[in-house]
Design a protein around this nucleic acid. Structure first.
Lengths: 342, 342
DNA sequence: ACCATGGGCTAAATCGATTTAGTTCTTATC
DNA sequence: GATAAGAACTAAATCGATTTAGCCCATGGT
């Protein structure tokens, strides 16, 4: 059984393909197609189970009603949840989302952009890798709107972005720790190559400074990017067992690192918060359920998804002709969720 | 800046579009295009940054090199991880994956199939909803291969499926609990409307029976489908607080229910395993990290993804002409992972 | 000188839609 | 009775590829 095309409908209904097209696109009235013909075509289309071929439509119109979403890793709770919000949000505007994971690999990210571009997606929401700015500029030059999420390029303000206020979030967390009396605050982060991580790191130093606490290099652990789970776990394990005695609190700068941290703390049987207070940037089911529950700086995931989608839709609407909407570089407030670990 | 098309290349290189097409598709030699022309076209294409329009290509060839993946909810750890495996696996065969979530809603599932069908995906991997069999038969009738994962239709053996051995997994878990001396084993499941859940439930009763343990209806909790998180949590909470004293072990039949269970057990301060042993079908980071660690029946996620992809690829290859490969209805062994909760 | 062969390339049809510019009737208007 | 104005449709171009059939030219054989 072959698929039914518009000309099959036309033949069966005894009209031209143009007429069928008008009826299927609600342009029948504007095109003065008679009531009878409209009903006839509609009936035939329904009987034959007609579904317009979106490839053909997209080819002709230049619009696919599809947006490309590129995240770091779809199996990570944070990105999965972000993806779900964006999918739901897109549906409201009648767009479909196709997502892919870069695994934080530059080459893969470029390939994905290429792939999506070949598939003619109308716009992009991207969690960028470090050197992706030029590739993204190319998309913009082709008049394809892009909105960055989670990460951004400070030197490229012209690329719209929606993200949590990383600096503010970490600052709030640090103030909280200090207010609770902790002074020997350790930090576990990933290589701060991208601006969002740099912002987080900067806040750490700034707040220590503000309270006249001298930062101790031995208390700052940079886990390199691209480590497999076991290697990263080993890094954190080594850090906490070697330097643990110097610290009274530890702040994990990402969700993933936090999970590694919990795993390690459990293994080392460190008493939280008596021996060590724990705070993590970014929530996770585990933190809510672990004993003790782990305090976090929570990102407004739904809001990020919504605002990013909104910014993208605006740009899709104004695409080409008019001048684009106001520059969008949103930083959304993070929320400190105090739990038992501090 | 507009996109470059094949005819732009042709014009600039001073050849016909056919020639360009042959060169771009490695058919140049077969079509006896001279070395010089080949190099020339390749250079021009590279300089102009040519990327073939996949819509046009797909329209002409009828193949999009895309497969549709429909899961229940992409933000659930199990499905997210399955999706990632399938995405990676697909890339090996040079296919792209587009995924969507049904939220276990029949209408939404149908809409998604429609949407993917309109976008002309070449094949489908589907976590079906209860009444989706007829819609799936339609896809097969259109010669679009489908492979089911996670769930299946026992009365439709002609629809290939790859899933864990649900019956065997639960049976193994039950044997383990009984061997460890537990007799008052409670069960928390969702409405057993689909076969895979029925299989799990059946194994529970069969193993009890095998050991001459009389099932107690009060120890079996069916949480209705479609409950929001809070409502479902409330159901589990009520069950464990009301009937908790009757049981010495509880077996959660899904990942999601297990998380609700942990949340409840934590709230009720039930001592695991002294007051109550806990076992869950399907692993989750939380179970590994909770104190005590929770024993699980683990699904072979990567294997499910690989085997499903393999089955689909075979069918895509043999599509149309030859007779399809052997019927695929795989049940893969589950693995009991004993931890501290039993 | 004529035909066959093969090398090197191109013209044109095709996929399934959308969309512009008509065409063919009616009917109203002066 | 001629003309203009609509009403109700349709023909054909178009989007950007792939692919089949065939053109033109050079060479070789007879």
């Amino acid at each position: 059984m072959k698929k039914v095309s518009i000309s099959d409908i036309a033949r069966k209904a005894g009209v031209s393909v143009s007429t069928v097209s008008f009826v299927m696109n609600d342009k029948a009235v504007k095109m003065r197609i008679s009531r009878e013909v409209i009903t006839k075509v509609e009936n035939v289309a329904r009987e034959m189970g007609y579904r317009p071929n979106q490839l053909a439509r997209g080819l002709r119109t230049g619009k696919t009603k599809t947006i490309g979403l590129i995240v770091e890793n779809i199996s990570n709770a944070f990105f999965a949840s972000l993806a779900k919000t964006i999918e739901d949000e897109a549906k409201k505007y009648d767009y479909k989302v196709v997502y892919c994971s870069t695994d934080n690999d530059e080459a893969k990210a470029r390939d994905l952009i290429n792939m999506l571009s070949q598939r003619q997606v109308d716009g992009y929401i991207i969690v960028p890798t470090l050197h992706l700015a030029d590739e993204i500029r190319k998309l913009q030059a082709e008049n394809k709107p892009v909105v960055l999420i989670d990460r951004y390029f400070p030197e490229h303000g012209e690329i719209p972005s929606v993200l949590v206020d990383n600096y503010g979030g970490v600052a709030e967390g640090m103030e909280y720790l200090i207010e609770k009396g902790y002074r020997k605050i350790a930090l576990v982060t990933i290589e701060a190559d991208m601006a969002h991580m740099h912002d987080r790191l900067q806040a750490y130093y700034d707040i220590l400074n503000k309270h006249d606490i001298t930062p101790d290099d031995r208390l700052v652990k940079l886990v390199p990017y691209g480590y497999v789970h076991e290697a990263a776990l080993e890094e954190v394990h080594h850090f906490l067992s070697a330097e643990g005695s110097r610290m009274d609190a530890v702040f994990f700068l990402t969700n993933y690192l936090g999970v590694l941290g919990i795993e390690t703390i459990k293994k080392l049987k460190i008493k939280v918060p008596e021996e060590m207070a724990v705070l993590c940037f970014d929530d996770n089911d585990i933190f809510r359920l672990y004993t003790p529950t782990i305090s976090v700086i929570k990102q407004p995931i739904a809001e990020i998804g919504q605002k990013a989608m909104l910014a993208l839709i605006e740009r899709l609407r104004h695409s080409g002709t008019e001048l684009p909407p106001d520059n969008t570089n949103l930083k959304l407030a993070a929320e400190l969720v105090p739990r038992e670990s501090i």
